[in-house]
Design a protein around this nucleic acid. Structure first.
Lengths: 341, 341
DNA sequence: ATGAAAGCGCTAACAG
DNA sequence: CTGTTAGCGCTTTCAT
């Protein structure tokens, strides 16, 4: 046994007794209700203070049917994009006196739904899911739980009522357009795994940019990594094994690009002199690679913030579809340059 | 108004009525208590299933005086070290059916304590604080709240009963010893801000290694950043402005080292040919800098895991001081080499 | 094996 | 302005 055994804490009843009032009056006084005589309220507050009273939110939650809590489910807590988003979520949540539950689902749709269920059992007021693999399938679930669910970067090919997504198409079109403008015509794409929505979008932007420039896409220059550094290295190796090398590579994301960069260096090729390289996301990291990476900035923190604000608005009783879309901003750095003549 | 208005959910009473039993029996059946006839239990579970019953943890928490929740307070969610630790925490928490609250305190001791208070009001079963600025001052607080608090990398110069800390001294001594072994005698140190415990320890390891080698420390080669990349750049600039340059630099952490690396490159100096560089932490990133960084590995994920296990053990009623200490492991990569002759 | 009843800490409707 | 009462959903004696 240790010193943390549960015994009962001081409750409003205790301070009611001490103040010679009913516990209801104490409750009112502590909520600064105008229904209680200022002097009484003051006295009660002093006693509470003296007793070291700390309200019990569990009791309150049971009475009010609200927990002032939101649940956030993510694919990988340590992923820098995710961490930034969560940071945005936490900031606005705390500013509004909400606490946030954080849980990992490892990109597994079943786990994702299990976590959502567990949040519901804890009666969170609302749920945020980043990079959901479930998407619009949540609509009936959310309705049944009577708990709003907001998606951030929905990865399921479905349009969900409440979501904050980055529209990657213009961003990647712009990035590839930038390569074209530099004079590149041999541009490869390293994607994520098949089927994820953002990968499809970024690939689509890539194709649009090529089409716009009247360049035919070449099958062998479209390869796939896994969205992580390792996948980028593997994919880039595949590219470098080809008889005909591209002069530029647009990557699904910065992590992929960093992996590719490494492999390019291993082959004693230089960026951007031999190969231009562009990514997507603008990780903190991207400005500190050698050379700094041209990329498309994804407003991670803001997206977390926005999603939380939408949720709070819904909880406040407003109802409006909120399919918010943000765009990426092209950031040109030193990893892209005109191709060699 | 929207569709998420609260009305009441199905409770054990509803299913009790439907099953023609008391709600106590339902409660028992749902907990698979042996006190209820198997057939009855089965029938109840089926009805619950059919009704789509979801237990309400708020009610349960009020009755059991436990929330199966732990609170985690960190300095910066998006800090890669923090994110890794939280990831370790979440993994073991979830494996034991605990949920985790995550909150940011921005390295401010007052906010840190406010968050701890707010966790207590929500009656979390236990609290984890990473890089606490409050340290042993929690002892009375935790006792009064009757809620265990575990510290991870306590930054307050005090020894706290329950903590998981990295002992940075041997690690940094080894890192600097490695530089000495390579033949360096002119070794600088870029620290964090003054007064943080880990900085003091790492500096101490640096000094010990120099002493061991009979090298006198030089004041002007001891400079301070802020633990972040920017601080590393500023500090390194200061170093490069000196009339006599060190041949090696040991940095408080990897982020500082990455900042330093950048400035060294800006000055057209090469690592490790002109200057050797070592960091601390072994961020994911550290193996992907140019050149890959020699550093001391901090077992971030494990530390989160260990702290949570200690907490769970305390919650299970065991009591034992648990000042766990982990050590860093020197990882030699390409950023360190013998000095030029 | 089951039910009745009390209680966890709080809010809120109602009565005065 | 304040007290009484009921109730939020659940667990847990105590009877039977």
């Amino acid at each position: 046994m240790n010193t943390f055994a549960r015994s009962s804490y001081i409750s409003i009843k205790d301070i009611a007794k001490a103040a010679g009032v009913s516990h209801a009056t104490v409750s009112r006084a502590l909520q600064s209700s105008s229904l209680v005589k200022p002097e009484t309220a003051q006295r009660i507050r002093e006693i509470a203070q003296r007793f070291g009273y700390r309200p019990n939110f569990v009791g309150r939650s049971l009475a009010t049917q609200r927990t002032q809590t939101i649940g956030v489910v993510v694919n990988a807590i340590a992923d820098p994009i995710v961490a930034e988003m969560v940071s945005g979520v936490e900031a606005v949540a705390r500013a509004h006196d909400y606490s946030v539950y954080l849980a990992n689902c490892h990109a597994d749709p079943e786990t994702e739904m299990r976590v959502v269920q567990s949040f519901h059992e804890r009666r969170v007021d609302g749920i945020l899911v980043a990079a959901s693999r479930v998407g619009a399938l949540y609509e009936p679930i959310a309705a049944q739980m009577r708990t709003p669910i907001i998606l951030i970067n929905n990865q399921h090919p479905s349009s969900y009522k409440y979501s904050v997504n980055i529209n990657s198409i213009p961003g990647s079109r712009e990035a590839v357009g930038h390569l074209v403008a530099l004079g590149h015509r041999d541009i490869a794409y390293i994607g994520d795994r098949f089927g994820y929505q953002t990968d499809l979008d970024r690939f689509s932007g890539y194709r649009q940019a090529l089409e716009l420039a009247g360049i035919a896409a070449r099958e062998e220059w479209i390869v796939h990594g896994d969205g992580k550094l390792e996948g980028g290295t593997l994919a880039m190796r595949k590219l470098l094994d080809l008889p005909a090398l591209p002069s530029a590579v647009f990557c699904y994301n910065d992590m992929t690009a960093i992996g590719a960069l490494r492999v390019i260096h291993e082959h004693s090729l230089r960026v951007p002199q031999d190969i231009s390289l562009a990514g997507f996301d603008d990780l903190f990291l991207a400005s500190y690679t050698e050379p700094p990476l041209t990329t498309v900035r994804q407003p991670k923190h803001e997206m977390g913030r926005m999603a939380t604000e939408i949720l709070l608005r819904i909880l406040a009783g407003e109802d409006s579809d909120a399919r918010t879309e943000v765009k990426g901003e092209l950031i040109v750095r030193a990893s892209t340059a005109p191709p060699r003549a």
